[in-house]
Protein backbone atom coordinates (compact mmCIF):
# COMPACT_ATOMS: atom_id res chain seq x y z
CA UNK A 1 0.00 0.00 0.00
CA UNK A 2 1.24 3.46 -0.83
CA UNK A 3 2.03 5.70 2.08
CA UNK A 4 -0.14 8.64 3.13
CA UNK A 5 2.67 10.94 2.14
CA UNK A 6 2.49 9.63 -1.39
CA UNK A 7 -1.21 10.34 -1.45
CA UNK A 8 -0.73 13.90 -0.27
CA UNK A 9 1.90 14.57 -2.87
CA UNK A 10 -0.16 13.15 -5.68
CA UNK A 11 -1.11 16.18 -7.74
CA UNK A 12 -4.45 14.83 -8.85
CA UNK A 13 -5.64 14.43 -5.31
CA UNK A 14 -4.39 17.83 -4.35
CA UNK A 15 -6.49 19.40 -7.07
CA UNK A 16 -9.58 17.58 -5.93
CA UNK A 17 -9.02 19.08 -2.51
CA UNK A 18 -9.13 22.66 -3.77
CA UNK A 19 -12.48 23.96 -2.78
CA UNK A 20 -13.16 27.19 -4.65
CA UNK A 21 -13.39 27.13 -8.43
CA UNK A 22 -10.39 28.63 -10.18
CA UNK A 23 -10.00 32.41 -10.28
CA UNK A 24 -7.34 34.96 -11.04
CA UNK A 25 -6.01 37.18 -8.31
CA UNK A 26 -5.02 40.84 -8.27
CA UNK A 27 -3.71 42.89 -5.40
CA UNK A 28 -3.84 46.54 -6.47
CA UNK A 29 -2.27 49.29 -4.42
CA UNK A 30 -4.58 52.19 -5.25
CA UNK A 31 -8.32 52.84 -5.40
CA UNK A 32 -7.92 53.91 -9.06
CA UNK A 33 -6.43 50.54 -9.92
CA UNK A 34 -9.35 48.79 -8.21
CA UNK A 35 -11.83 50.90 -10.16
CA UNK A 36 -9.99 50.10 -13.41
CA UNK A 37 -10.20 46.36 -12.75
CA UNK A 38 -13.87 46.64 -11.77
CA UNK A 39 -14.77 48.39 -15.01
CA UNK A 40 -12.76 45.88 -17.04
CA UNK A 41 -14.24 42.77 -15.41
CA UNK A 42 -17.73 43.99 -14.45
CA UNK A 43 -19.66 41.44 -12.42
CA UNK A 44 -16.97 38.81 -13.07
CA UNK A 45 -14.82 40.47 -10.41
CA UNK A 46 -15.26 40.30 -6.64
CA UNK A 47 -13.64 42.40 -3.95
CA UNK A 48 -11.86 40.55 -1.16
CA UNK A 49 -11.56 42.52 2.09
CA UNK A 50 -11.41 40.45 5.31
CA UNK A 51 -12.73 37.44 3.44
CA UNK A 52 -14.79 36.30 6.43
CA UNK A 53 -18.03 36.35 4.45
CA UNK A 54 -16.63 35.98 0.94
CA UNK A 55 -14.35 32.98 1.53
CA UNK A 56 -17.15 30.72 2.79
CA UNK A 57 -19.13 31.45 -0.38
CA UNK A 58 -16.05 30.67 -2.51
CA UNK A 59 -15.30 27.48 -0.56
CA UNK A 60 -18.85 26.29 -1.07
CA UNK A 61 -18.84 27.50 -4.68
CA UNK A 62 -21.85 29.71 -4.08
CA UNK A 63 -19.90 32.26 -6.05
CA UNK A 64 -17.31 31.71 -8.76
CA UNK A 65 -15.71 34.99 -9.81
CA UNK A 66 -13.19 35.16 -12.65
CA UNK A 67 -11.11 37.67 -10.72
CA UNK A 68 -10.68 38.24 -7.00
CA UNK A 69 -9.47 41.76 -6.25
CA UNK A 70 -7.69 41.72 -2.90
CA UNK A 71 -7.95 45.27 -1.47
CA UNK A 72 -5.75 44.56 1.56
CA UNK A 73 -2.91 46.46 -0.10
CA UNK A 74 -4.80 49.77 -0.03
CA UNK A 75 -3.28 51.34 3.05
CA UNK A 76 -5.37 54.51 2.73
CA UNK A 77 -8.49 52.46 3.51
CA UNK A 78 -7.14 51.26 6.86
CA UNK A 79 -7.32 52.87 10.25
CA UNK A 80 -9.49 55.29 12.13
CA UNK A 81 -9.10 59.03 12.03
CA UNK A 82 -10.84 61.82 13.85
CA UNK A 83 -11.03 65.15 12.06
CA UNK A 84 -8.85 63.68 9.32
CA UNK A 85 -7.58 65.79 6.45
CA UNK A 86 -10.76 65.57 4.43
CA UNK A 87 -12.95 66.43 7.39
CA UNK A 88 -11.75 69.93 8.09
CA UNK A 89 -15.10 71.40 7.09
CA UNK A 90 -17.21 70.04 9.92
CA UNK A 91 -14.71 68.35 12.22
CA UNK A 92 -17.59 66.61 13.97
CA UNK A 93 -17.12 63.21 12.39
CA UNK A 94 -15.30 60.02 13.08
CA UNK A 95 -13.98 58.48 9.89
CA UNK A 96 -13.42 54.74 9.74
CA UNK A 97 -11.51 53.43 6.72
CA UNK A 98 -13.26 50.53 5.01
CA UNK A 99 -10.40 48.13 5.76
CA UNK A 100 -10.27 48.78 9.51
CA UNK A 101 -10.45 45.37 11.18
CA UNK A 102 -13.11 44.55 13.76
CA UNK A 103 -10.43 43.88 16.40
CA UNK A 104 -8.85 47.29 15.89
CA UNK A 105 -12.22 48.97 16.38
CA UNK A 106 -13.00 46.81 19.41
CA UNK A 107 -9.76 48.00 21.06
CA UNK A 108 -9.89 51.64 19.94
CA UNK A 109 -10.17 54.23 22.75
CA UNK A 110 -11.26 56.80 20.12
CA UNK A 111 -14.23 54.68 19.09
CA UNK A 112 -15.12 54.01 22.74
CA UNK A 113 -15.13 57.75 23.43
CA UNK A 114 -16.83 59.08 20.31
CA UNK A 115 -19.01 56.17 19.18
CA UNK A 116 -19.54 53.90 22.22
CA UNK A 117 -22.40 52.09 20.48
CA UNK A 118 -19.90 50.60 18.03
CA UNK A 119 -17.63 49.44 20.88
CA UNK A 120 -20.60 47.83 22.61
CA UNK A 121 -21.58 45.90 19.47
CA UNK A 122 -18.11 44.63 18.61
CA UNK A 123 -17.85 41.65 21.01
CA UNK A 124 -21.10 40.26 19.57
CA UNK A 125 -19.63 40.00 16.08
CA UNK A 126 -18.45 36.45 15.46
CA UNK A 127 -15.33 35.23 17.29
CA UNK A 128 -11.84 36.65 17.93
CA UNK A 129 -10.21 34.85 14.98
CA UNK A 130 -12.86 36.25 12.64
CA UNK A 131 -12.68 39.74 14.14
CA UNK A 132 -8.91 39.72 13.54
CA UNK A 133 -9.56 39.61 9.78
CA UNK A 134 -13.09 40.93 9.17
CA UNK A 135 -13.40 44.60 8.22
CA UNK A 136 -15.88 47.37 9.02
CA UNK A 137 -16.36 48.15 5.32
CA UNK A 138 -16.90 44.47 4.52
CA UNK A 139 -19.70 44.22 7.07
CA UNK A 140 -21.41 47.31 5.70
CA UNK A 141 -20.95 46.26 2.05
CA UNK A 142 -22.21 42.76 2.82
CA UNK A 143 -25.43 44.17 4.37
CA UNK A 144 -26.32 40.95 6.15
CA UNK A 145 -29.75 41.50 7.73
CA UNK A 146 -28.56 39.85 10.97
CA UNK A 147 -25.34 41.88 11.21
CA UNK A 148 -24.75 44.35 14.03
CA UNK A 149 -22.85 47.16 12.32
CA UNK A 150 -25.43 48.19 9.69
CA UNK A 151 -27.98 48.73 12.48
CA UNK A 152 -25.47 50.68 14.59
CA UNK A 153 -24.59 52.89 11.64
CA UNK A 154 -28.29 53.68 11.10
CA UNK A 155 -28.84 54.40 14.79
CA UNK A 156 -25.93 56.87 14.77
CA UNK A 157 -27.06 58.63 11.56
CA UNK A 158 -23.78 57.59 9.94
CA UNK A 159 -22.81 57.94 6.32
CA UNK A 160 -21.20 55.57 3.88
CA UNK A 161 -18.57 56.84 1.45
CA UNK A 162 -18.67 55.07 -1.89
CA UNK A 163 -16.08 55.72 -4.59
CA UNK A 164 -16.50 55.19 -8.30
CA UNK A 165 -15.07 56.47 -11.56
CA UNK A 166 -16.65 59.88 -11.07
CA UNK A 167 -15.27 60.29 -7.55
CA UNK A 168 -16.54 59.76 -4.02
CA UNK A 169 -20.12 60.23 -2.88
CA UNK A 170 -21.72 59.95 0.54
CA UNK A 171 -24.91 58.10 1.28
CA UNK A 172 -26.83 58.32 4.54
CA UNK A 173 -26.90 54.91 6.25
CA UNK A 174 -30.70 54.91 6.25
CA UNK A 175 -30.66 55.09 2.43
CA UNK A 176 -27.75 52.72 1.94
CA UNK A 177 -29.33 49.41 2.93
CA UNK A 178 -31.88 48.70 0.19
CA UNK A 179 -32.89 45.09 0.63
CA UNK A 180 -31.54 41.67 1.58
CA UNK A 181 -27.78 41.91 0.91
CA UNK A 182 -28.54 44.83 -1.39
CA UNK A 183 -27.02 48.28 -1.00
CA UNK A 184 -26.94 51.59 -2.80
CA UNK A 185 -23.49 50.71 -4.22
CA UNK A 186 -23.56 50.35 -7.99
CA UNK A 187 -21.43 48.02 -10.08
CA UNK A 188 -17.96 49.46 -10.42
CA UNK A 189 -18.02 51.26 -7.07
CA UNK A 190 -16.23 50.43 -3.85
CA UNK A 191 -16.90 51.35 -0.27
CA UNK A 192 -14.00 53.48 0.95
CA UNK A 193 -15.03 54.73 4.41
CA UNK A 194 -17.77 55.20 6.94
CA UNK A 195 -18.41 58.43 8.80
CA UNK A 196 -20.11 58.73 12.15
CA UNK A 197 -20.97 61.95 13.99
CA UNK A 198 -19.12 62.16 17.27
CA UNK A 199 -21.18 61.49 20.39
CA UNK A 200 -23.22 64.59 21.20
CA UNK A 201 -23.46 66.10 24.70
CA UNK A 202 -26.00 64.23 26.84
CA UNK A 203 -26.34 61.33 24.39
CA UNK A 204 -26.07 57.70 25.43
CA UNK A 205 -26.08 54.36 23.65
CA UNK A 206 -27.21 50.84 24.47
CA UNK A 207 -26.92 47.60 22.58
CA UNK A 208 -28.28 44.09 23.04
CA UNK A 209 -28.94 40.97 21.03
CA UNK A 210 -30.11 37.42 21.44
CA UNK A 211 -28.18 34.64 19.72
CA UNK A 212 -28.12 30.90 20.19
CA UNK A 213 -24.41 30.92 21.03
CA UNK A 214 -22.05 33.77 21.78
CA UNK A 215 -20.73 35.09 18.46
CA UNK A 216 -23.45 33.59 16.28
CA UNK A 217 -25.49 35.84 14.05
CA UNK A 218 -28.37 37.27 16.10
CA UNK A 219 -31.89 35.89 16.24
CA UNK A 220 -32.89 39.47 17.05
CA UNK A 221 -30.95 42.52 18.16
CA UNK A 222 -31.23 46.26 18.68
CA UNK A 223 -28.99 49.32 18.61
CA UNK A 224 -30.27 52.25 20.69
CA UNK A 225 -29.12 55.85 20.95
CA UNK A 226 -30.79 58.80 22.66
CA UNK A 227 -30.38 62.01 24.54
CA UNK A 228 -31.03 61.45 28.23
CA UNK A 229 -31.69 64.49 30.36
CA UNK A 230 -32.95 64.26 33.95
CA UNK A 231 -34.11 60.72 33.21
CA UNK A 232 -36.13 61.86 30.18
CA UNK A 233 -35.48 60.33 26.78
CA UNK A 234 -35.45 62.39 23.61
CA UNK A 235 -34.28 62.01 20.00
CA UNK A 236 -34.34 58.24 20.46
CA UNK A 237 -33.13 55.83 17.78
CA UNK A 238 -34.15 52.18 18.03
CA UNK A 239 -32.80 50.19 15.10
CA UNK A 240 -33.43 46.44 14.98
CA UNK A 241 -31.55 43.77 13.07
CA UNK A 242 -32.33 40.15 12.17
CA UNK A 243 -36.05 41.01 12.12
CA UNK A 244 -36.32 42.14 8.49
CA UNK A 245 -34.38 42.23 5.24
CA UNK A 246 -32.54 45.43 6.25
CA UNK A 247 -31.96 47.25 9.54
CA UNK A 248 -35.40 48.38 10.74
CA UNK A 249 -35.86 51.77 12.42
CA UNK A 250 -38.77 51.51 14.88
CA UNK A 251 -40.23 55.00 14.34
CA UNK A 252 -43.49 54.51 16.25
CA UNK A 253 -41.71 53.11 19.29
CA UNK A 254 -39.20 55.97 19.11
CA UNK A 255 -42.02 58.53 19.02
CA UNK A 256 -43.77 56.83 21.92
CA UNK A 257 -40.69 57.46 24.08
CA UNK A 258 -40.14 61.12 23.11
CA UNK A 259 -39.95 63.22 26.29
CA UNK A 260 -40.81 60.24 28.50
CA UNK A 261 -38.95 58.81 31.44
CA UNK A 262 -38.36 55.10 31.36
CA UNK A 263 -40.93 53.30 33.51
CA UNK A 264 -43.29 50.35 33.16
CA UNK A 265 -45.92 52.43 31.38
CA UNK A 266 -43.60 54.00 28.80
CA UNK A 267 -41.87 50.69 28.15
CA UNK A 268 -45.25 49.05 27.54
CA UNK A 269 -46.25 51.86 25.16
CA UNK A 270 -43.01 51.47 23.19
CA UNK A 271 -43.47 47.70 23.09
CA UNK A 272 -47.02 48.07 21.77
CA UNK A 273 -45.86 50.48 19.10
CA UNK A 274 -43.37 47.86 17.91
CA UNK A 275 -46.29 45.82 16.60
CA UNK A 276 -46.70 48.51 13.93
CA UNK A 277 -43.00 49.08 13.35
CA UNK A 278 -41.86 45.52 12.78
CA UNK A 279 -43.16 42.70 10.64
CA UNK A 280 -40.54 40.05 11.28
CA UNK A 281 -40.41 36.88 9.25
CA UNK A 282 -39.58 33.59 10.86
CA UNK A 283 -36.36 31.74 10.10
CA UNK A 284 -34.72 28.45 10.96
CA UNK A 285 -34.44 29.26 14.64
CA UNK A 286 -37.37 31.48 15.52
CA UNK A 287 -40.90 32.06 14.32
CA UNK A 288 -42.16 35.55 13.49
CA UNK A 289 -44.07 35.68 16.79
CA UNK A 290 -40.98 34.69 18.75
CA UNK A 291 -38.94 37.39 17.03
CA UNK A 292 -41.55 39.97 18.00
CA UNK A 293 -41.32 38.72 21.58
CA UNK A 294 -37.52 39.06 21.47
CA UNK A 295 -37.78 42.58 20.05
CA UNK A 296 -40.06 43.66 22.89
CA UNK A 297 -37.80 42.17 25.53
CA UNK A 298 -34.74 43.81 23.93
CA UNK A 299 -36.57 47.14 23.87
CA UNK A 300 -37.18 46.92 27.59
CA UNK A 301 -33.54 46.07 28.22
CA UNK A 302 -32.01 48.88 26.15
CA UNK A 303 -34.43 51.51 27.45
CA UNK A 304 -33.58 50.48 30.99
CA UNK A 305 -29.86 50.71 30.19
CA UNK A 306 -30.27 54.12 28.53
CA UNK A 307 -32.03 55.51 31.59
CA UNK A 308 -29.09 54.32 33.68
CA UNK A 309 -30.98 51.49 35.37
Amino acid sequence: MKSLKWLLNEKKIREVQLKPSAFNYAKPSSVDEVLGLLSEYGDEATILAGGQSLMPTLNMRLSAPALVIDINGLSDLSGISVDGENLRVDGENLRIGALTRHTEIENSPGIAEHAPLISMAMPYIAHPAIRNRGTFGGSIAMADPAAELPACLCALDGEVEVTGKSGARKVAAKDFFKDLYETDMAEGEILTAVEIPKLGAGYRSAFDELARRHGDYAMAGVAAHAKVDGGKISDLRLVFFAVGSTPVTAKKAMNAMEGQSVDDASIAAAQNALEQDLSPFGDLHSSAALKMHYAKELTKRVLTTLSGG
Binding site: Y25, L48, G51, Q52, M55, I130, R133
Partner: peptide
Protein backbone atom coordinates in the same frame (compact mmCIF):
# COMPACT_ATOMS: atom_id res chain seq x y z
CA UNK B 1 -16.33 22.93 8.35
CA UNK B 2 -14.35 24.88 5.75
CA UNK B 3 -16.52 27.94 6.24
CA UNK B 4 -15.27 29.59 9.37
CA UNK B 5 -17.54 28.06 11.97
CA UNK B 6 -15.59 25.34 13.80
CA UNK B 7 -12.11 26.79 14.48
CA UNK B 8 -10.25 23.53 13.74
CA UNK B 9 -8.09 25.37 11.19
CA UNK B 10 -6.92 28.14 13.56
CA UNK B 11 -3.34 29.35 12.93
CA UNK B 12 -1.51 32.55 13.81
CA UNK B 13 -0.55 35.17 11.25
CA UNK B 14 1.83 37.84 12.52
CA UNK B 15 0.79 36.81 16.02
CA UNK B 16 -2.98 36.97 15.51
CA UNK B 17 -5.24 33.93 15.31
CA UNK B 18 -7.09 33.53 12.02
CA UNK B 19 -9.17 30.91 10.24
CA UNK B 20 -6.87 29.02 7.87
CA UNK B 21 -9.89 28.12 5.74
CA UNK B 22 -10.90 31.78 5.28
CA UNK B 23 -7.59 33.08 3.96
CA UNK B 24 -5.87 32.42 0.66
CA UNK B 25 -2.35 31.05 0.80
CA UNK B 26 -1.15 33.97 -1.35
CA UNK B 27 -2.43 36.39 1.28
Amino acid sequence: CEHGVCGACTVRIDGEIVRGCLMLAIQ
